[in-house]
């Protein structure tokens, strides 16, 4: 495992920590899209179907369990926690799941590496992850006074995918036959979706003003 991959995973993990911290410390999930969180949970469930059948390393298994566990914990906080669930911006978080899930499912049925249920579901999770941030980005644009932790959370999620691209470049040059078109193109699309956010995030950080996205 190279340094970019490890850094990517750690940043991804940190994004979960920041999100749970924000929700728990403020007892509020204001500005967080439940739709994006549900889509991420679906992504992890679909991708880690091989959790018990395909052992790669202790590291991989542990991280998969942590990602799954944290995703479900966040869903519980946002949907089931008495105090926190009333802070959810239900009226603002209006993105339709089907606009994302359906095209990704169709694409996975059409473009995949092997015609097996496991492979198609895995490919679906790759496509869905690329676009799962969209409800969150739309909600951010609608939210006035984005708090720092929410901004940092989205930044870390984008950074994670950016680091994975460096990891793929590194692997392409160091590992023979390492070519992963589906993963690479999806990962690049996923990272591009963050570029606009990055621009405003870095600008607000440099000017030392509160993050606000133009609507």
């Amino acid at each position: 495992m190279n340094i970019f991959r490890l850094a990517g995973d750690m940043v991804h993990l940190l994004s979960f920590v920041v999100l749970v911290l924000k929700i728990n410390a403020t007892k509020s999930c204001r500005g967080i899209s439940l739709k994006t969180q549900e889509l991420y949970t679906l992504v992890f469930v679909c991708r880690y179907l091989d959790l018990f059948s395909n052992f790669i390393s202790m590291y991989n298994t542990t991280m998969k369990i942590v990602f799954l566990g944290t995703s479900f914990a966040i869903l519980y906080l946002m949907r089931g926690h008495k105090v926190i669930k009333v802070t959810y911006d239900r009226e603002q978080d209006t993105f339709r799941y089907l606009f994302l899930v359906l095209p990704c499912a169709l694409l996975a049925l059409l473009i995949h590496n092997a015609w097996t249920p496991f492979e198609v579901v895995w490919t679906f999770s790759i496509y869905l992850e690329a676009v799962a941030i969209l409800p969150q980005l739309v909600l951010l644009q609608r939210t006035q006074n984005i708090d720092n932790l929410t901004g940092n959370y989205v930044f870390l999620l984008g950074l994670y995918r950016g680091l994975y691209i460096l990891n793929w470049i590194y692997r392409y040059f160091t590992e023979p036959h390492y070519i992963q078109w589906i993963v690479w193109i999806s990962g690049i699309v996923q990272t591009i979706l963050y570029l606009d956010f990055f621009y405003y995030y870095i600008k607000s950080w440099k000017n030392n003003v509160k993050l606000a996205l133009p609507s």
Partner: peptide, 10 residues
């Protein structure tokens, strides 16, 4: 071998 390689990322 490549099947395993493909699934070693999170």
């Amino acid at each position: 071998e490549r099947e395993d390689l493909k699934k070693d990322e999170l």
